[in-house]
Each structure stands twice: as structure tokens, then as C-alpha cells.
Design a protein around this nucleic acid. Structure first.
Lengths: 189, 189
DNA sequence: CTATATACGGAACAAGGTTCCGTTTAGCAA
DNA sequence: TTGCTAAACGGAACCTTGTTCCGTATATAG
């Protein structure tokens, strides 16, 4: 692949990522191309369709988020690593305005994304989670998937408020994860 | 209001209803106007925006569905009435491809719809449900709202299959409602 | 019957996605 | 270094969709 082609792809992905975070995934292709400093023709040479560009951005960010897990795990003790990565994950989900709508749109470009979530994010978190569990720092009555879902919900719903609202709510949730933090309140339902 | 204006409104609502059922709520305004035998100008004279037309169609169908409840209740015994109305409700939800997306779009035209659901459909079903319960024909461990939600889910998800798939699933669900029909299976976690 | 407020149709406009094609250029070979 | 050419580029043009505008037609009160 020619070097300028690779540069275009990188610029497009970066521009799209930035615009999606601020304006949602409905950002017009022309704006994306402008911000990347390329023409729309170039955009369409690299991504067959607007949806393919969106999917590529999501995939890239998902991977980056998953890749952060082992790095964080190597540098911090189990529970801190888990907490930090969940904030990282929250930041990822928080920039995905319109993600849910896109996923349910039925567009074939998005079909592969759920599978990628399973293959990358889920195991990435599970490793952190099991390390923290093994260290006895996480209560035993909660499932790893529940946490990923809960954090995603927190970040999806409250996105128009102050931008750190989600971060704080995730922090509260993480505190609640601490082993034995609320032993008397564990009887739910 | 002039008679021709009323005719236009009726024609538009009917055309939109038919198109929404077959092509989803994304049907273009021009197609709707054509099918109604009017120009797009007329459409926009009657409905400030495309979303307002969609909302009007939903409202009208919701009301029709709710109005059917007392009619059915007057003609059939409690449990049959309940079963029949749920099929009516299923038919309504089944023609609403894209309803969920529209509701979550944040468009102000749809803001009033959830309230209308509460005010019309919920009580309409609750009356049927309580009559059947009073007659001892419905198991006691289920809530009326759960049923409305479950039927809606059934009709939303499986819409591309054979069109009667949802109808059959709803029928199965209704059978499960019969009081004492599966007493041994009632222990669900 | 006539006057006029009301309604109608559809061309025109705006905005967004996608395609097309003439121009430019990276990178290899001589 | 210089030429060559496949690859890449930009952006005008096109298509579809929602919305607006306005000249024409008509229902209906008096």
C-alpha cells in the first residue's frame, strides 16, 4: 500500500473518531473528509460506505480499549487495574453517541461488531476481573458481564449532563465492587 | 374545516399507515403523498413535519386498539376477550417497524406518545386482565405490564419471519397465562 | 352567484450519501 | 536522476429525502 494511502486512512479514522465523539455518528461525510484534509472521493475509496467507516472507527477503538487491559494490569495491583480499565471502557462507550441505534439499524457493516466485542472486550475484562477476584478484592455475587453491561448503561443514558457524571457513577459502582464493602446489603430481591 | 381538507387528512393517515406496515416508518413523504392522491404540499399543510405524521398515525392506531377493548369485552367471556385483544395488540405492534428507533430519536413530535400509551393502552388491557383474573382464569404470579411488554418484544424481534410467527408465539404466551395451566412449572428461579 | 378564505399540487431548495472522472503523485526501473 | 504508470486524490455532479413557497383551484358563506 502506498504511503499516502495509509496516511489518508489514518487521518480519516482520527477525524471521524473526533467528530463522532462531539457530534455523534451522524456527522456528515463531507465534514469528516474536510477535517481529515482529504476529499470525499478519498474517503469512499477507503471505506465503501459511510457505515463501513463508522464500523472501522468502532472496531479500532474497541481494540485499543482491549489492548489497554494487559498494559494496565502489568503496572497496577489487581483492583486498581480493574477500576482504571473500567474508566477507560466508560470513556470509550461515552464517546459512542448513536452506537446503539447504529447497531440495531440492520446495516450489514455493523454485523461483525458484536462478535468483536465478545472476542476482545469481554475476555480483556474477564482477565482483570478474575485477577481481582483471586486477590479477594471483589465481592463474589456479581458476574463480569453484568458489570460491563451496567457501565455501558451508565454511560449511554447520562451523556448530556456534565461530562464527568458518568465517570463518577462508574466510580461509585466500582466502589460497590470491593469485596465485603456492603456485606449486609448483599441480599437483593 | 373544509370537507376536502378532512378528506386529505384521512387519506394521508390511511396511506401512511399502509406504507409504514409494509416499508417501515422510513417510507418517503413523496410516496405517502402519492399513495394518498395528494401533493406533498398538502401533506405539509396538515402535518408540520414528517415526524408529526408518524406520531399521528401511531396515536390513531393506539386509540383504535384501546377502543377495541371494551367492544371485545362486551362480546366474549373474560379469558377469550383477553386473548383476542392481545392478538389485536400484537397486530398493532407488528406493523410498527422502526417504532422503537423513532421513539428514541429524541424528536419532540414523539414526546407525547409514551404518555398516551399509559393513558389508553395500559388501562384498556388492565381492565381485560382484571376481569379475567376475577374470573379465576389467569395465573396470579404475573403482572399485566409484563404481558404487554412481552408481547411487544415478541412482535418487535421476529418480524421478518413468516408473518404469523408472532401471532403463534403470542398464542403460546396466552396459553401460558391460563390459570393453573402449568402449576408445576411456575417455579422460575 | 360571487367573493374570498382556504386548500391544493408540485416545482424548487437544502442537505446528505455516493459516484465519476480528470488530475496528481509515489515508487519502481532503467 | 529521470520516466513511467498504477495508484491515489479532490471535488463537482448526481440521487434521494425532507421541507418550503407560491401560483392555481375550489368550497362555502352571504
Amino acid at each position: 500500500m502506498r504511503a499516502d494511502a495509509q496516511r489518508s486512512i489514518d487521518a480519516l479514522l482520527q477525524a471521524a473518531m473526533a467528530l463522532f465523539a462531539t457530534s455523534g455518528v451522524d456527522a456528515p461525510v463531507r465534514e469528516i473528509a474536510d477535517r481529515a484534509g482529504v476529499g470525499v472521493g478519498t474517503l469512499y475509496r477507503r471505506f465503501a460506505t459511510r457505515a463501513d467507516l463508522i464500523a472501522a472507527v468502532f472496531r479500532r477503538e474497541m481494540d485499543a480499549c482491549a489492548d489497554a487491559a494487559p498494559v494496565i494490569a502489568a503496572e497496577y495491583p489487581p483492583f486498581e487495574a480493574l477500576a482504571m480499565w473500567l474508566q477507560r471502557y466508560a470513556a470509550f462507550v461515552g464517546t459512542k453517541r448513536g452506537l446503539a441505534k447504529a447497531l440495531h439499524s440492520g446495516d450489514p457493516a455493523f454485523e461483525a461488531l458484536p462478535a468483536r466485542f465478545e472476542q476482545r472486550l469481554r475476555p480483556a475484562f474477564r482477565t482483570l476481573f478474575e485477577a481481582a477476584t483471586a486477590a479477594g478484592e471483589v465481592r463474589a455475587d456479581i458476574d463480569a458481564d453484568e458489570i460491563l453491561g451496567a457501565v455501558a448503561s451508565l454511560c449511554m443514558s447520562a451523556h448530556d449532563d456534565r461530562p464527568d457524571h458518568a465517570r463518577r457513577m462508574v466510580a461509585v459502582l466500582v466502589d460497590g465492587l470491593r469485596y465485603g464493602a456492603n456485606e449486609s446489603a448483599n441480599a437483593r430481591s
